Simulated scan of single mutants.
Amino acid sequence: MKIFSKITGTGSYLPPKRVTNHDLTKQLAEQGVETSDEWIFTRSGISARHFAESDVSASDLAVHAALRAIEMSGLDKNQIDLIILATSTPDHLGGFPSTACIVQKKLGIAGCAAFDVQAVCSGFIYAVSVADAMIKAGNNKNVLVIGAEVFSRILDFNDRGTCVLFGDGAGAVVMSASNEPGVLATKLHADGNYSHILSVPGKAAGGVVEGSAFVYMDGPAVFKLAVSVLEKVAREVLEIANMTSADLDWLVPHQANIRIMQSTAKKLHLPLDKVIVTVDQHGNTSAASIPLALDCGVRDGRIKPGQTVLIEGVGGGFTWGAAVVKM
């Protein structure tokens, strides 16, 4: 009997501290950095984002989202046999122990395999693709896939080109072995030739950070590349699934910039009312943005069982990917 992987539960979590554009503009003005609500919103579509408190880590956010996804799936947490966590802001410098292992400890389900995936804003798509392959190979039955970020820790609040764009949060799904098709197709890409346009260029050496520990982004270059690759990978994954954009009920893209999302939808001939948008309230939460948006769509009743959803992301590396999923 053929094995499929299917999303059986979704969950998300945002730290309580909500920071509006007005709040951020006031904070930046005190530092001598000029910006405005209008400037931020017209360029990104962002009105607010959430920032974690200083004692809250990516694993803390991840646990909240994970528990909600597990609850929706109807599983006992001890039935989870693999944890894959996508993050660019791990709990520990150097990324070890992995944040996935810390989440495993906090969930109290030690014993199953757990590891992190690093593909920045494409991380959740990469993690879903790995989970899908592991389930279809018969290696795992119930995989917890999480995207969790505390990007506020790596933002330079003197750089208005980046600090106004990002937020903190976590999203999760449970993917389980099924007799019914769930994940219909995935497609991943990367091109290291573009690694310089979006990065955190610092490195640890001798107990200190050499270079910058803040996000650097060439905004125009990232925008141009993102618009190009998101359309292409969407068409690629639809072709693999033997579908067209007309077969889609929903597009759940990485929530980076409303103009990128609108451009992708237009190129795919999808009306904007078929696009799940949370960037206005969440900002860019990197690897957490897709599962956050997916969970919002599921819990508010827009995304229904049996519907077909295309999820896609693009991020530093440069990485990008997409998946077609029947809910």
Rank of each mutant, 00 (worst) to 15 (best):
Q307C: 03
V130L: 15
D300P: 07
V56F: 04
G316E: 10
S44Y: 03
A131Q: 01
T278W: 06
T35V: 13
L310F: 05
V117P: 01
L268C: 09
F157A: 00
L272T: 12
T87I: 11
F166R: 04
V174H: 11
D116L: 03
L85W: 06
M217W: 06
G202H: 02
V209S: 07
W250L: 05
P220Y: 00
A58H: 06
A177Q: 11
A110K: 13
T89L: 14
M1S: 11
R18P: 02
I7P: 01
I125L: 01
V227P: 02
S73L: 06
L85Y: 08
G74Y: 04
K274Q: 14
E53I: 02
G297I: 04
W250N: 06
F214Y: 15
V56I: 15
S122Q: 01
G207S: 04
F96P: 01
I102G: 04
V314H: 00
E34R: 13
S12H: 14
V275K: 12
V183P: 01
D249N: 15
F214P: 02
D295Q: 06
F51A: 02
K266Q: 15
G167A: 11
F166L: 04
K2Y: 05
E236N: 12
E312P: 00
H92R: 14
Q255D: 05
L294N: 10
G206Y: 10
R153I: 07
S59I: 05
T89P: 12
D60H: 12
V233F: 06
A246D: 15
I46S: 13
